[in-house]
């Protein structure tokens, strides 16, 4: 029984033997992307889960060329890698960065913005687990409203994070980037197709992939893929692309599943009151109104 998606990517494993937690969504995103890009991908990883679990000397889990960058400098190091290899006459390679949500939306946003501005020929993949998971679950700019982290604890007065999630996809698109996309590890064929598409495009590419963290989200290790699917099905995340100045929605759920069912499955949202869930549902509906107005469906 042939699987078209599995046949379209390399059979080699390029991220193997790593020390990520069981059921890690981030490692699934990195593994799948590297299998698309092949042995000539040069990956750049800032401080974060994937560099912490991938480079434990002498256990080095990337089978392609990989380097750890400064926390803020993923995109600028990608620029250097791409320019350096090009200057030395290499043609068949892809410079790809894997940064977490903190490394992208908070600490690395300036370097990313600069790289998009220069239109360097790189792929930047943000695996979004919605907090600084590597250092022990601190709030990042991409932590959603209501989520409990160690820096936004849930008390009787304030129920976790009080700020909504930053919209990194549209921030990247606002630079008039050649290609930007959102994805989820729950819809892996869609993510793989987007990495494939990005590798064919000249200029800066940004892919934002939701990668649940069982440890930080408070779900079972085997729930990673299901919860990544459910966040799309309930409308709190969407699969879209930005290309040639237009937004395009790739996946339109016929009917949204229950938001509170999605939230209550996770330890980080379990404290939410009905009022908080009302706020989250209202912000979802507002977002989808915007999508229906401005995105190609």
């Amino acid at each position: 029984m042939a699987n078209k998606v599995a046949d379209s990517i390399s059979r080699e494993e390029f991220f193997y033997g790593h020390k990520a937690c069981a059921g890690c969504g981030g490692s699934l995103a990195v593994r799948a992307a590297l299998k698309v890009l092949g042995p000539n991908a040069v990956s750049v990883l800032p401080a974060g889960c994937m560099s912490a679990v991938g480079f434990n000397f002498p256990q080095l889990c990337f089978s392609n060329n990989s380097i750890i960058s400064t926390f803020a400098g993923t995109a600028s190091m990608l620029t250097g890698v791409e320019a350096g290899l090009r200057a030395r006459g290499y043609k068949d390679f892809t410079a790809v960065g894997f940064a977490g949500d903190g490394g992208t939306a908070d600490i690395g946003i300036q370097a990313l913005s600069g790289a998009i501005d220069r239109n360097d020929n790189i792929i930047y993949i943000c695996y979004d687990n919605e907090a600084y998971m590597n250092t022990g679950i601190q709030k990042s700019g991409l932590t959603p409203f209501g989520a409990k982290t160690t820096t936004t604890p849930a008390g009787s007065n304030i129920h976790g994070n009080i700020r909504p999630k930053k919209n990194m996809f549209e921030i990247a698109a606002a630079h008039d980037i050649p290609y930007a996309a959102t994805a989820s590890v729950g819809y892996l064929p869609d993510f793989i197709a987007k990495v494939q598409k990005a590798s064919q495009i000249q200029g800066t590419k940004y892919i934002h992939v939701i990668a649940p963290c069982p440890t930080g989200w408070g779900v079972a290790p085997d729930a990673t893929v299901d919860i990544a699917k459910e966040v799309v099905d309930c409308g709190l995340w969407y699969l879209a692309e930005y290309e040639n100045g237009t937004f395009k929605l790739n996946h339109k759920p016929k009917e949204f599943t229950d938001v509170s069912a999605y939230l209550k499955k996770q330890g980080r949202f379990r404290h939410l009151t009905d009022e908080d869930i009302q706020i989250i549902t209202a912000s979802r509906d507002k977002k989808w109104e915007f999508i229906k107005k401005n995105f190609e469906l």
Binding site: F14, G17, P58
Partner: peptide
């Protein structure tokens, strides 16, 4: 250091 260098199992 060499890429894909595994010394321990999980």
């Amino acid at each position: 250091f060499e890429a894909g260098y595994l010394t321990t199992v999980n």
